[in-house]
Design a protein around this nucleic acid. Structure first.
Lengths: 239, 239
DNA sequence: TGTACATCAGTGAACGCGCGTTCACTGATGTAC
DNA sequence: TGTACATCAGTGAACGCGCGTTCACTGATGTAC
């Protein structure tokens, strides 16, 4: 009788390690040539393996892409959550600034990964269904921070009927419980509205920077984003 | 002696028509499968032509992509300029609203074309050098509209030294003369700052919508963008 | 502790696909005298 | 108005490439008695 099935065993550990190496090589390719440059054969060659060996670790090209996307979402969500934990206790305004800076920092440090989750959907590739939940996890700390804020009246409620949305869209219920455990319906709606507003602004600025579309304009993206945080904080009446 | 070399002649006209048909077929493919799905052979087949015939009209795949991108930029810039001309005389605030709505309308009506110019840069494809100038042309009416506005102090000047930038970056000189013919340095800087601010916000909202990343959030993108226009107008102190 | 068996990582050859691009050519269309 | 020539759209065959994926297999590693 084995001591406990919980211990992975050397084989499983080695397996996980190889999976990680494959993903690392794949990311390196993405960084160089974009989504179109991701080729299983080239990855194998780079690892000193031969072609079909990769099929021991991933069901195929799409499966590998799935894993990369999930990792990227989880990683970004983790970074944002860490920042929220670190800055807990600060004023909402400076917390928002920290979260936004973390978001941008993550994106510009590894543009290919940001493009993977925030860029053009890959042709012929159907995103895994958990994608929506992952995206919401990234927004989680923002909603939590902004719950109960007072958005500029023009913004209105992003989701008119929160309860209807939560029952219609799977996963939303649990998400709300995680990030807004004790918020009133009004506070939750305000937080969601604020988070979407922040999201659109930050994604706009960051994705333009990451795609290199700023090249011709000549300005400092970090400073611009900081300024936009102030505008956002004003629009949401943050202290 | 021919009447005037200015008249294109039937051959040249037919040639232009075929070029247009090729581009239309290419756009149809982009709409279905994204950038990766653009294949010369398939385009040819769709037009009843056979493979190499396309090389009479385009030097290759990249040349065709160049043309599509230039067209998209020019088309969007034209739409925005038309909107500016139509709404001339309105208050800055409602003019901004019209321009932004036009921008979004163009993008959501043909998402593939918006992704072509605002999405992830295509792997292995080097954007033509005029791209920057085209992007600036789209922003032109916005700068013109916002020249002399009073941006929120936090925003600061997007370009600290406008004159240095204009001499460093080719094409900027002429661009400034076109859209800010008689503006003071301060008014020009304010207009540029405002335009960049508007650009980041609108691109953020529109690109999230066009990429389908809104699916899981459940809200009305057009209403959100309208609200954001009010916030922008406030941040730029528009009448 | 040793032996028999199951599991699984990895290989090499091969298939089929679609693509971009080149080449030598045919035939129609326009142009010059 | 008619003829000779140049221009140019379009063809068919072919090359080479890199890719995803399948298959039957070998050999090492772990496991059960």
């Amino acid at each position: 009788m084995p001591p406990q099935a919980a211990t992975p065993g050397p084989r499983a550990r080695y397996r996980e390690q190889t999976r990680a190496e494959i993903k690392a090589a794949a990311l390196a390719q993405l960084a160089e040539g974009g989504t179109g440059a991701l080729a299983l054969v080239k990855i194998a060659k780079e690892l000193g393996l031969s072609g079909p060996a990769l099929y021991r670790y991933f069901a195929g090209r799409d499966d590998l892409l799935d894993a990369l996307i999930c990792d990227a979402y989880a990683d970004l969500a983790g970074a944002v959550a860490d920042a929220a934990a670190t800055s807990a206790g600060a004023t909402p305004r400076s917390l928002l600034r920290d979260l936004v800076r973390t978001f941008r920092g993550w994106a510009v440090a590894q543009p290919h990964r940001y493009l993977l989750i925030g860029g053009t959907p890959v042709p012929g590739y159907e995103a895994p269904p958990q994608t929506r939940e992952h995206a919401r996890a990234v927004l989680g700390p923002f909603v939590a921070l902004l719950a109960g804020c007072t958005p500029h009246p023009a913004l209105g409620p992003v989701v008119a009927d929160l309860r209807a949305w939560a029952t219609r869209e799977p996963g939303v219920e649990r998400w709300l419980e995680t990030y807004l455990p004790e918020a009133s319906a009004e506070a939750a709606a305000a937080g969601l509205t604020g988070a979407v507003q922040v999201w659109t602004q930050v994604h706009g600025t960051v994705s333009l920077e990451v795609s290199g579309l700023y090249n011709g304009m000549g300005h400092d993206p970090a400073a611009l984003l900081d300024a936009q945080v102030e505008l956002l904080a004003d629009a949401l009446s943050l202290a």
